[in-house]
Nucleic acid binder design. Structure first.
Lengths: 339, 339
DNA sequence: ACAGAAAAGGCAATCGATTGCAGTCGCTCT
DNA sequence: AGAGCGACTGCAATCGATTGCCTTTTCTGT
């Protein structure tokens, strides 16, 4: 069971203290490397701890110090059924957040929530397990988030910022992004546009609104909207349905995400419709895969790494008692092959 | 600050007990819905707690009960530098794991580790924060994992199983998968094969070995190996280098992952080389995106959802004191367009 | 009406580390 | 020599919930 070098396992500070011939308090201070205890004693105790593979119980420490060192990352699955979590955009953002949080010396706890009532976020922030929380995506839960944000400060949201909102959000200017995409299609000469995306969440709704704004100045241009799930298995069949309904009636498609765009291009290809020559397609996000596909995707870039940094930064400041405001980043059109 | 309905915030059980006119113990039992306390009292206390938005401190509960309800998910980044975590395969597996863990009533804590010494895993499992741990990928840390597995039972690894290993692994038969891929290429008539993948981790090494086995029976067939990072930014330029070095000398490529295959196809396309007509390409994993790309990817399928289920299941049994063995799943060749 | 049992709830120890306060020891300074 | 100070270290309270055991109350049966 043991590998020979570790004859006894020590389970708490008191036991280590007995072996070292000092009191528990001293051991605690020694392990925390406080200069209060004599350097030699300190090193002796640290060596002893290492030798026995002893590590102080975090639960007790956290109870006593009243801070957990844990940041919660919450993914609300409001209007989607299964497996939203596998959406590559969320996962990418999540990856960067994990990096940032780890680097700031915190642990990361993940909560995947399918909001069943209005208390899901309260349960999370009141659990006493978290120093702060990051929410990825507002879904259709903006009101719940807003209510909690009123009493719980260390909370930062990825999503859209609206005038007068209390919640601290970080996100891209989605309307501007939508405008960029539509403008690009119009500039190529497309007039009969479609928008593929589920507008129940504020972010996608903003993108649609931006696209509509771009249309405003162009006489004869039209835009039809088709609700499309973000990352579920039904997405492909939904899009197939949209394409059938559209028939020849379209020459440009604004997709609400790169994944939707990718699937759309795939399905157009199957139908023998050339992209971008017959139909031009834009994505949104600029995930790494958008430059790996054939054809490469013209898309609206969100700087996910910068977003993650901004979120963790805002949270850090709120943890310190300051009052960090929302951040709105500017999107950028990345011209590639698909539009 | 308050929304009117919650005049006082209660910070601990004792305080609630005072308000309810009972003892702290009774409140604890009432909140746990134990039949020991009178139904009416119980409901009264629960109502009171709801009304005041009170939720018992998890840290204290966990200290007392000696169980955390938290499962750690560890991603060791042994031989990769940056951002391995964004690898879609890991992320997909992670997503499924998150689902399973959440459903089994546990919380999930993520640790991203760049192993700097031999103690990284000890630190995690001894932190006292975790009931058990899941490790995604062995990387080049098989020995460290093996040592820890000897004394820490609730530990399940995604990766390769080797004869005589103590660690409980769940994974696909990578050698069989490599064989499947190579056999497919040979069956199409390809003879000059290449393998793109970094064989420092045991899983990829097994895939290569399987491919080599497939070659054995075919006279005149050759296989050259090119180390290729899994999901870093350099991957594209590495692969470009490989292709330049290979020149016309290749008619089939076994890629160690779907992402490598996707990038490879993209680069072949840029060079005007038709896939699969001039060069056939196989992937590994069968990520959702492999059927969304153009051309669709012929690949070796790992059932990630089933794998996640198996991992959590094994962990659950180990948590209960049983001794769950390793699981080796059979891979399946998915024939699509690229080979 | 009374023994005996069941039901309900209170008391206090416990989980393990942290930390303010107080005590001890050895020196220095006058 | 004795006061005074600094450097260490020990003592015990504390964080908040849980739970074994004991007491009180209520009910049942005869």
């Amino acid at each position: 069971m043991n590998d020979g070098t570790k004859p006894a396992k020590i389970k708490n500070i008191a036991e280590l203290a007995r072996i070292a011939g000092v009191s528990a308090g001293t051991v605690s201070r020694a392990l925390a490397d406080k200069s209060l205890v004599n350097k030699e004693t300190r090193e002796r105790i640290q060596a002893l701890a290492r030798e026995h593979g002893f590590r102080p119980n975090q639960m007790a420490r956290r109870l006593r110090t009243q801070q957990t060192g844990v940041i919660g990352v919450v993914i609300p699955l409001g209007h989607e059924r299964r497996q939203h979590i596998s959406d590559p955009f969320f996962m990418t953002l999540f990856g960067y957040l994990a990096d940032e949080i780890t680097e700031s010396g915190h642990d990361l706890m993940l909560s995947r929530v399918i909001p069943g009532d209005d208390e899901w976020l309260d349960r999370i922030v009141d659990s006493g397990m978290l120093d702060g929380a990051l929410v990825i995506g507002q879904s259709n839960q903006t009101d719940v988030i807003e209510r909690v944000a009123q009493y719980y400060k260390p909370l930062v949201i990825w999503g859209s910022h609206r005038e007068g909102q209390v919640q601290c959000t970080v996100g891209v200017d989605n309307a501007a992004g939508g405008r960029l995409a539509a403008e690009r299609l119009l500039a190529r000469g497309a007039k009969r546009l479609a928008f593929f995306g589920d507008t129940k969440g504020p972010e996608i709704a903003d993108r649609l609104e931006g696209a509509e704004q771009a249309l405003a100045g162009v006489p004869g241009a039209t835009l039809r909207t088709f609700p499309t799930h973000l990352a579920s298995d039904e997405m492909a069949s939904q899009i197939a349905g949209h394409l059938a309904e559209l028939g020849e009636e379209v020459d440009g498609i604004v997709c609400a995400s790169d994944i939707i765009a990718m699937t759309t291009i795939r399905l157009l290809h199957e139908r023998g419709i050339a992209v971008p020559d017959r139909v031009a397609v834009t994505g949104f996000d600029d995930l790494p895969l958008s430059q790996r596909m054939v054809p490469q995707l013209t898309t609206v870039r969100q700087d996910i790494a910068a977003g993650a940094r901004a979120m963790v930064d805002a949270l850090r400041r709120r943890l310190a008692g300051e009052d960090a405001p929302s951040t709105v980043m500017q999107p950028e059109l990345i011209l590639r092959e698909s539009a």
